[in-house]
Design a protein around this nucleic acid. Structure first.
Length: 850
DNA sequence: GACCTGCTGCGGTATG
């Protein structure tokens, strides 16, 4: 049989790669598995899939007849996390396999798929379907789901690393378990980029049902050369306050773009993308039409145009956020620029992989630091990439909101027998440890909303039908449920529109609320003037003057990953070594920041990987303690709150805090009552959870987070399309339900889930705990530099920002930087380091000078 | 023209 695959490739003038042969051999033997493919091999994959698709599940099997009437039923299902990918894949497959119409369809939204195609699909599915996890759920919610999927032979999940570890991933797992029940013998294959825990990712993809124990992890033999370089500023500032925009290096970046055919410029935030787009248009004014902008708050249509332009090679540069991390292949791209730290090894690899798609080309990546310490992060990330390190993804455990949604989906899709569904659900990785109690609870929840809500008709979604089967309560409930399928919950945002009605994208309510009509801001690369706010839309016109105000959005917080943090510690050791020996470290970035670390070493200490550095400094502001655990900003936030709380339990003092990815700062007007030998005690992981809940208003956090759980589980509905319930209203109804449950049903499992998720997501609790455990084995060094150090200074600036108005902040930070700089040029010899005269090491001793 | 962080992703009704 494998020979027919060979023939398939040969007929197209291709030779399959060894890993493709391996996949095929296993596929034909009826196995399932996960293929580990580095990013940027999309076309190759289309080719890999070609024979499956064409042979409707088995290469060499009957060709798909060209007439619709006798086409075989759905045989191959391909799931991608993005609709654009689905559409692109269908296009590629058509090119690769020739027209296999009309069996190839993309299931999409009403607005995207024309109604005749959709109508056809509702009668009968195509032979091969490319779709999303949400659409799979919608398909499973059709009454005849069982028949429709009965002939399914193969399901492929693309970009599994994107879905794994998320609620969308769990939704996919549940859908796959359902499919395996409906189509016994179904083979499941996944494609994943590099991930720290691929075996677990595979387990979760395949589940534990019959026929899935023969899972194979196939390593691709494809590797692409990667060239990572950084812009190293000639003059390094020892006191890097310059913020996170990075525009100081605009000229260098513009020059790099000149040497590239097409470049992607990645930034970490949308506001940053807007600014960089503006700045690049300014720097290369004649080419401004060939520069584009792309981020998640821009209108879909506009983004699609940019994507098409990229693929066609119409642009010199596109400035983007993670919105272009995934998506179709842009072969013309031959340079990727990363502005600001990537914060993770995998993210850097992913972005690098967006360039050099033509065979034989290598990926070129140019890193642009936005302040001096980021040079260390870049050097560290490259070293980690070379070592082959990558971040693992934590699998989600028993998210009951997703389970509740799935139960209703199955009830709508023809109904179920409870015992059978339980057995099926337990074959998924996410629910393998689901207890009987949890199951009963989830089931009751869909039947009457649980104890507290029983009696309200709208919570009785599932009822007993014929033969003990549980089915959906009414047609109306079924419709409402379909409208609520999915696990992505958005934030309150307003459309930005021209008076004529053309939509530009969305901005946050909070931002608009601070504007008055007539105010101008930059958005979508244009200067816009606000006319009025009307029906959840900000109506704008083109402003006559350039605007400097840029909207800010609430987004993820992207802390430095643990793996990258480890690499940063190694990099610091290597700088230390360089300073000692006077030889180069081999990394230009590290050589570049050496003067900064020389200063650090002179006045304080460069922490070794097995040390925790604490700096105590007195300034006019008061008493400072700087700690550098290097655990990422989210952990530092929790830790700062915890330390402040623990430190002041006895004494009454007000502690202000600041954090960044490297460390945290605690400041008190009077003395911070912590002796040098007391830090270890304050940092103990014992009683961590209780203390955190006590000092962080755990229930307030949980209440806000409950909105997502209420939406996913179906407790609150978001209304009909077009007449979408406002997010604020959604928050309000979810808050109400939260309060009712808290009062009358405190043991409610969804409340518990909200508390659990908030701990993990907004506090990274596991990482914090692990970090504290590790700190136990580290040696604590308390240093007393005479002034702020290079490591401490950014934290000082960060904290000051929160208290002063915008203009004076910059002034103040600049003045302080200059003052320190002046002092340091007297005190510290540049390179190699000499012990500073103002250094006072009092490790282990109690402070006396307060 | 002036730098003060925060990303991404999806779906659905009804009638002619």
């Amino acid at each position: 049989m494998i020979s027919s695959v060979e023939a398939w490739f040969k007929g197209r003038g291709w030779t399959p790669f060894p890993f493709q042969r391996e996949v095929w051999r296993r596929y034909l033997a009826g196995e399932s598995g996960l293929v580990h493919v580095p990013t940027g091999f999309g076309k190759t994959l289309a080719a890999w899939l070609g024979p499956v698709m064409e042979g409707a599940g088995a290469p060499g099997a009957a060709e798909v007849p060209s007439k619709r009437g006798d086409a075989p039923p759905l045989a191959v299902l391909w799931i991608t996390p993005m609709r654009a990918l689905a559409q692109d894949l269908v296009k590629n497959l058509r090119e690769v396999t020739g027209e296999v119409a009309p069996g190839w369809l993309v299931e999409g939204r009403t607005g995207d798929t024309n109604s005749t195609e959709r109508g056809r699909q509702s009668r009968r599915l195509p032979t091969a379907l490319v779709t999303t996890p949400e659409s799979l759920s919608v398909l499973l919610s059709r009454e005849d789901a069982a028949e429709r999927f009965a002939q399914l032979q193969c399901v492929v999940v693309d970009e599994w690393h994107e879905l794994f570890g998320t609620k969308r991933g769990v939704q996919t797992e549940l859908g796959l378990a359902r499919l395996r029940r409906l189509a016994p013998g179904l083979r499941t294959w996944g494609l994943s980029a590099t991930l720290g825990n691929l075996p677990e990712a595979m387990e979760s993809l395949l589940g534990s049902g019959p026929g899935t124990d023969a899972g194979a992890l196939v390593e691709s033999d494809r590797r692409r050369a990667l060239e990572v370089r950084s812009v190293v500023p000639r003059e390094i500032e020892c006191f890097p306050w310059a913020g996170h925009m990075g525009l100081r290096l605009l000229d260098e970046v513009a020059a790099a773009l000149d040497s590239a055919r097409t470049a992607l410029v990645f930034t970490n935030t949308r506001a940053q993308a807007e600014r960089w787009y503006q700045a690049l248009c300014y720097a290369r004014y004649d080419e401004r039409d060939r520069i584009a902008l792309h981020h998640g708050s821009l209108d879909r249509e506009q983004r699609a145009e940019v994507e098409a332009g990229l693929a066609a090679g119409r642009y010199r540069a596109v400035v983007a956020t993670s919105s272009l991390d995934l998506g179709v292949d842009f072969s013309p791209v031959d340079l990727v620029v990363q502005v600001g730290s990537p914060k993770g090894i995998a993210r850097l690899a992913q972005r690098a992989g967006r360039s050099g798609h033509a065979p034989g080309l290598s990926s070129r990546l140019l890193c642009v630091p936005t302040h001096a310490l980021e040079l260390v992060e870049f050097a560290a990330a490259r070293e980690a990439l070379e070592r082959g390190d990558s971040e693992p993804r934590a699998a989600l455990q028993r998210p009951l909101d997703v389970l509740a949604q799935h139960i209703v989906t199955v009830a709508v899709g023809g109904g179920f027998l409870p015992d059978e569904l339980l057995e099926e659900v337990r074959t998924t990785h996410a629910f393998r440890d689901l207890s009987d109690e949890e199951w009963t609870w989830a089931l009751d929840f869909t039947r009457f909303g649980g104890e507290t809500l029983a009696g309200y008709e709208r919570y009785a979604r599932v009822v007993e039908g014929k033969g003990g089967k549980l089915v959906i309560a009414s047609r109306r409930t079924a419709r409402d449920h379909r409208l609520n399928i999915g696990t992505i919950v958005g934030y309150g945002s307003l459309d930005v529109k021209f008076r004529g009605g053309r939509r530009l994208g969305t901005i946050e309510e909070v931002f608009v609320s601070r504007l008055r009509p007539g105010d101008a801001f930059t958005f979508s690369g244009r200067s816009l003037e606000l006319i009025k706010v009307e029906d959840a839309a900000a109506i704008v016109r083109v402003a006559s003057k350039p605007a400097t105000l840029v909207p800010r959005w609430f987004g993820g917080r992207m802390p430095l990953s643990s793996e990258l943090a480890k690499a940063v510690r190694r990099a610091m050791s290597s700088v230390k070594e360089t300073l000692r020996t006077g030889e180069t470290s081999g990394a230009p970035e590290l050589d570049g920041v050496a003067p900064l670390f020389a200063r650090q070493a002179a006045v304080s200490r460069i922490p070794e990987p097995d040390e925790l550095l604490i700096e105590r400094v007195r300034t006019r502001d008061g008493d400072h303690a700087f700690l550098f655990p290097l655990e990422g900003r989210i952990v530092h936030e929790g830790l700062a709150a915890l330390l402040a709380w623990r430190a002041t339990r006895a004494a009454k003092v007000t502690v202000t805090q600041a954090v960044n990815d490297w460390g945290l700062e605690l400041v008190t007007r009077t003395e911070l009552p912590v002796g040098d030998d007391e830090w270890a005690e304050l940092l103990t992981p014992e009683g961590l959870l209780e203390d955190l809940l006590a000092c962080l208003d755990g229930s307030g956090l949980a209440r806000r987070h409950f909105r997502e759980i209420a939406r996913v589980s179906g407790l609150v509905q978001q209304g009909l399309p077009g007449a979408r319930k406002g997010q604020r209203q959604l928050q309000a109804s979810a808050g109400l339900v939260f309060d009712v449950l808290t009062e009358h049903d405190p043991e409610n499992l969804l409340l518990e889930q909200a508390r659990r998720e908030v701990m993990e997501r907004t506090l990274e609790f596991s990482r914090l705990r692990a970090g504290l455990e590790e700190l136990r084995s580290r040696t604590i060094h308390v240093e007393r530099p005479g002034s702020l150090t290079p490591l401490g200074f950014p934290l000082w600036a960060e904290r000051v920002r929160e208290r002063v108005s915008s203009e004076s902040w910059e002034d103040r930070v600049r003045q302080m930087a200059e003052r320190l700089q002046a002092r340091s040029s007297v005190a510290a010899a540049p390179h190699p380091a000499t012990p500073g005269a103002d250094r006072q090491s009092v490790t282990g001793e109690r402070r006396k000078d307060a």
